[in-house]
Design a protein around this nucleic acid. Sequence first.
DNA 1: CCAGACGTTTACGTTAACGTCAACTTGGTC
DNA 2: GACCAAGTTGACGTTAACGTAAACGTCTGG
Lengths: 126, 126
Amino acid sequence: MAKSTYTISELANEFGVTTRTIRFYEEKGLIHPRREGQKRLYSPADRVRIKLILRGKRIGMSLQESVELIDMYKPGHNNRDQLHSLIRTVQDRRARLLRQKQDIEDMLAGLDEVQALCERGLEDQQ
Amino acid sequence: MAKSTYTISELANEFGVTTRTIRFYEEKGLIHPRREGQKRLYSPADRVRIKLILRGKRIGMSLQESVELIDMYKPGHNNRDQLHSLIRTVQDRRARLLRQKQDIEDMLAGLDEVQALCERGLEDQQ
DNA sequence: CCAGACGTTTACGTTAACGTCAACTTGGTC
DNA sequence: GACCAAGTTGACGTTAACGTAAACGTCTGG
């Protein structure tokens, strides 16, 4: 079963980052772990938040962009204008993501070509 | 028909970057346009190279990573060891790209959810 | 001829995202 | 009580990827 609290080094190990990184995220206001005396204690929600931030980083998003995307989930958008505005933001993000996806597929196709050339090169030698 | 040479500002405009960016790429050894006197003249090949570098940037690759990927295409890998080594590099890259692609698909699914929530919120109001 | 657009080099400035100490506290354990 | 691992708070350092400004050449239309 999943743990209900994590220490900073547990999370650092799990995600392959340093504790400095996690403290830095707090310093930047991305996460707000509670404290037990001095020590930070991370909830499952904190953990997921870090995980999502790192997912964003993997596709080249800045930390700010990541949290903006993450915070689209949390409610608090009540009136019509806010909802319409949020929908537009969602569509912009989607467009960018689709383009990135296309970029990746193009690169994957390129890699297939390179590999095919390599394999032909090996066969021709033998 | 496609042009056979480009000025720096033509390319900067086409790609939505500044001339400083393009000069910076040269300074870093990523491109090598020929000169006409002082002025830089870019070939279609230079142009494609810049385009691919910017494609890499869009999915979070560093400039170095981009050129490494681009230079996998150019031949010069002749002996078996080089070919095998290149194949491994290709497979590593592919793995990373597949993961990024998965990340993007997850985010897209998340955006769909957010939008659905927004639309329900709007309907509930009316 | 000269102003404006476009190009050049050189050099210092900036931002994000941490790395890297140093100097300390705190909780077990031998 | 001494020690060690794991935690803490500053604070300064670093790298990538440009931005920005100065100071200068070149050529083209009015």
